[in-house]
Write a protein that binds this DNA or RNA. Structure first.
Lengths: 115, 115
DNA sequence: ATGCTACTTAGACAGACTTCAAACCAAGGG
DNA sequence: CCCTTGGTTTGAAGTCTGTCTAAGTAGCAT
């Protein structure tokens, strides 16, 4: 059930990213490169139970429901979150593999690449 | 010499990001959320000696020099790289603290937040 | 000085992004 | 069956972004 950690790329300073890896990672990073989406992702991830209802998320922002819905869709399309409807409400949760992939990209630079 | 790891924020799934932290992080992430800039950062960081001349970077892309210069400026303004002129050439290097900060944000989600 | 090479700045333009209002779909309750 | 509540989709307006050409600055060599 728990997914394998997909290690797409070496840390950013290890070796030059290929064109296709860069393109793929940029899609994920673009999704996260917005204050509202960052906070949404953080709120979903830190919510008790690991999932959050849209109704919990909307109230925090001075934004309309369609706007929040749009941002959630961007995050979902990028593969960072996953949504599910249960009865009246829709719940979102983080996709850990995606977040881990970003973490691996910016892994600590203690050892510079071998010259 | 080795810089202190500036731990601005808990990992994204630990606790909700504050409005200001999210805004600040989004600036950095926006800088990185572009295929060209990702590759530039990667090329600079993985270059022998930890620094790269602009002349080394320009040839790799099918883009004009002004465009590359623009992207480097975005990365520099976001604090991700630092540049220095030595004679005829300009050399850029990664700012490890900035990259580490992004790494910390997407730190592994092995333990979900305590409910 | 003059010219050449390396790089940056300024201005312009097409495309993408964020946001909202309005309309729409889904589920549950009279 | 209608109404209410929760979310999404659509369409449009304003803004931001990536790219180019043209022009400017910095250093080196004649």
């Amino acid at each position: 059930m728990t997914a394998v950690t997909i290690q797409c790329c070496a840390p950013i300073a290890r070796e030059p990213l290929s064109r296709s890896d860069a393109a793929e990672l940029a899609v994920m990073l673009k999704a996260v490169a917005d204050p509202v989406r960052l906070r949404l992702l953080s709120m979903i991830g830190s919510h008790p139970g690991g999932e959050a209802c849209v109704c919990d998320l909307t109230e925090t922002f001075d934004l309309t429901a369609p706007t929040i819905s749009h941002h959630l869709k961007v995050l979902r399309t990028a593969g960072l979150i996953d949504g599910e409807r249960r009865g009246t409400w829709v719940y979102y949760r983080i996709v850990p593999e995606a977040v881990n992939r970003l973490g691996a990209l910016f892994a600590p630079l203690t050892e510079p690449a071998l010259a």
